[in-house]
Write a protein that binds this DNA or RNA. Structure first.
Lengths: 112, 112
DNA sequence: GTATTTTACAACCAAATGGTTGTACGACAG
DNA sequence: CTGTCGTACAACCATTTGGTTGTAAAATAC
């Protein structure tokens, strides 16, 4: 079961947008280590419960975390697969850069 | 000359924020391959010159591109080092996740 | 010289973002 | 049954974002 790559621009936007906030990055870190409820997360930050709830929602829309009910709580879990997809996106930039070097080498080394 | 890691939250915010826009990602791709002037970039997109200029400014503040004058033009060049720093940030998430697994293994394998 | 290109930057605008408070409701405890 | 806990969601607000147009100035072209 291979994970389908091919993210839309909009999905990629959401992923990086979600990562562009220190609180949200911290939530990802915590939830990658262990499942945490939204209220547990809320206790960790100097902002309202609703604010934390919104951050979790942004991460959920980016699919960087998933939420599953446990009793009255919602357990949040970080999704490593999505992080890896983001890494692959950055790899593509690197590959592109490498291709430039290859082309330069081609011109310089060419013995026509 | 080692590149100093240790990015502030604000710097990291800027990097991911800058990458959270399809036009800006495209600018990074183009300028990683070759130096491109701001006006050349502007020709590539269905938006005003000023809008493209702003996108370049966002990328520049994130240090994902650098600009250097050449005559009346400003040549934009993608900075691969910054991309790699972003990759390292994502790696840290992965390491964190891995540490969880290690701890789980520790508990399970423990022969006390 | 004058005209054109390329950039810089200000002012403006609508929409999105990141926060707040308040209300409501299901799940659990006493 | 009643009260508390955890969540959902709406309404509101200030700031940021992503776009626009307009004006000005420096570098090049004619």
């Amino acid at each position: 079961m291979v994970v389908r790559q091919e993210l839309s621009d909009d999905e990629v936007n959401r992923i990086f947008r979600a990562l562009a906030d220190a609180t949200r990055r911290d939530i990802v870190r915590r939830t990658l280590v262990e499942e945490v409820s939204v209220s547990q997360l809320a206790d960790a930050y100097a902002m309202s419960f609703a604010a934390v709830q919104k951050h979790v929602a942004v991460l959920e829309e980016a699919k960087l975390v998933t939420k599953q009910p446990r009793g009255r709580e919602r357990m949040v879990r970080g999704d490593l697969a999505r992080i890896r997809q983001a890494q692959r996106l950055l790899d593509q930039f690197e590959q592109l850069w490498r291709s430039r070097i290859d082309r330069l080498d081609l011109v310089l080394d060419d013995t026509h």
